[in-house]
């Protein structure tokens, strides 16, 4: 979860979340379960309650990505990022730090930016996921993307998709940002080539013109 977006504190704790909560995990730790290759949850009696256990083998999962339904059998430990990249070949989100530090894997979940490397795929099921690939509409670049192009806001381009998604989300929630807003709101993405100058100009341009 991105720590630069204060709206997201509860995004990962919806009640229908199928993962194993920490409390459940504590209840079942120590119980050994036979591992079929692909399985739904196994109900296990622990501390007098029926507790669903997913994995460690593959589990059937379903996702709503860019408005389409996607299915895959994945281990519960697989991240949303790896599912997107390796299962669905949506490789716009990049794997760089793989631990929520650089923002190159940023996608929208429930319309809010998240680090896909730090969301488990199993937790992301049935929640609307938007990746950079879907920002083009009818063959036209999104205004943020156009501004990135015009202001030369990419060099090697590896951080660019994450930045584009972050900028889009940021401008959606801050249509008239101050320079201070921009500095704070986009501090969750890192670039190595040093394209911040172009990114700053791109955001200012979109903010002025309106997205």
């Amino acid at each position: 979860m991105r720590d630069d977006d204060e709206n997201l504190k509860d995004a990962n704790h919806s009640s229908e979340s199928p993962g194993v909560s920490r409390r459940d995990f504590l209840k079942i730790s120590g119980i050994s379960v036979a591992v079929p290759l692909v399985a739904g949850p196994k109900m296990v009696m622990a501390a007098g309650q029926q507790v669903p256990v997913y994995g460690p083998g593959k589990v059937p999962m379903e996702f709503a990505i860019n408005g389409k339904n996607h299915k895959a059998d994945l281990e519960p430990r697989v991240t949303l990022l790896d599912a997107l990249r390796d299962q669905f070949e949506l490789t716009g989100a990049k794997r760089v730090c793989d631990r929520a530090e650089c923002g190159a894997c940023t996608v929208l979940m429930d319309n809010k930016p998240v680090y896909a490397c730090s969301v488990l795929a199993i937790e992301a099921q049935h929640r609307p996921i938007t990746t950079v690939e879907s920002l083009i509409e009818g063959g036209n670049l999104h205004p943020v993307q156009r501004a990135f192009v015009e202001n030369d806001a990419s060099q090697c381009g590896f951080c660019t998709p994450g930045f584009v998604v972050s900028c889009k989300a940021f401008l959606d929630s801050h249509p008239h940002p101050t320079p201070e807003d921009i500095r704070r709101g986009l501090s969750g993405n890192l670039c190595r080539c040093g394209t911040y100058e172009g990114i700053r100009k791109a955001i200012a341009q979109v903010a002025q013109k309106g997205a």
Binding site: R85, L90, T91, G92, A93, K94, R95, T131, V132, E133, L135, I136, L141, Q145, F148, V149, D152, A153, S154, G157, F158, T160, P161, V164
Partner: peptide, 14 residues
């Protein structure tokens, strides 16, 4: 730039 900003540019990792 257009293929990079739209996530279509393919890198070795992709």
């Amino acid at each position: 730039a257009p293929v990079k900003v739209s996530g279509q540019a393919k890198y070795t990792y992709d």
